[in-house]
Design a protein around this nucleic acid. Structure first.
Lengths: 146, 146
DNA sequence: TCCTAATTGAAAATGGTTATCAATATCAAA
DNA sequence: TTTGATATTGATAACCATTTTCAATTAGGA
């Protein structure tokens, strides 16, 4: 998983005439290992632990770069917290977001996607992308008091 | 429309032990007239034109207040532009957003809402709210070159 | 009218992100 | 492999939208 990602990045860099660096590879590996939905500062904290020399500016820059390379996606959730999501090769998915513990559950629903296309067509709208987020309480948090 | 909104605000303020002020009423009226989806700075520009004395801090504060009073909703769209939306009494709706001219088209789709509930149920998730945004090109922008 | 606390406007502070810049490192060409 | 042009880095300063601070003003009950 990490290996494929690192290759994808270096391919992208080579194609763009950009340079491969140790920092970029290390940040990418930590990003992949971190799982999905990390904020820039979370990622920076993890990177700093493993590589104290790397500055936050490089983390921010690399995250943007990963987005361009198709390895990450920027997400602006309604809770005001921006996060980057590792873009796995498996298709599009949407999110259930717990407003209490901030857990994120992913789901796919083909039927909803179809209906979105219908809506777009009705409005003479050409779809490029979409987002569907459902906010609420996850199973665990429903049980907890308060 | 403006009148009802102003009443709703003063009711809320009274209920909370807060005070009605001219500034709040004027900002609210301009907010309502501005139609949907204004950014804080857009609104401030309009307010300043009509009432040069009102500062931007008051506009920001009032917008937050309107959100608490249920008159406005904060929206963090994926394009990075935050906007406030006047919450009309007619039910929930979602958005088609043109990535070119930034036009926003609203729509409702009962069927999609139902499917969301299904997804939530399957994940033992208790829905509080949701958002569905479809990004793409509006009819007008599809025609325009580049 | 008076008094107290809420509200205001201006300015300073904040927080997350981006730009600047000198030093360093990559990599193609010699 | 050495060199040289330039991309990249880390530290810092700058940015920009939003929030906070604070003294002056004002709303609204006593």
């Amino acid at each position: 998983m990490r290996k494929a990602a690192v290759k994808q990045l270096s391919d992208y860099l080579a194609g763009q005439g950009l340079r491969s660096t140790n920092q970029r590879d290390e940040i990418l590996k930590i990003f992949v290992d971190a799982g999905k939905h990390v904020s820039a500062e979370e990622l920076y904290a993890r990177v700093k632990k493993a590589h104290p020399g790397i500055g936050f500016a490089t983390v921010y820059r690399t995250l943007k770069l990963l987005a361009e390379a198709g390895l990450a996606e920027e997400r602006h959730f309604e809770d005001g917290f921006n996060r980057y999501e590792y873009r796995a090769t498996d298709g599009h998915h949407d999110h259930l977001i717990c407003t209490k513990c901030r857990a994120i559950i992913e789901f796919e629903n083909e039927r909803i996607e179809q209906l979105q296309q219908d809506v777009a067509r009705k409005n003479h709208f050409k779809v490029q992308s979409h987002r569907l987020e459902i906010y609420g309480l996850c199973a665990a948090c429903q049980g907890r008091k308060k």
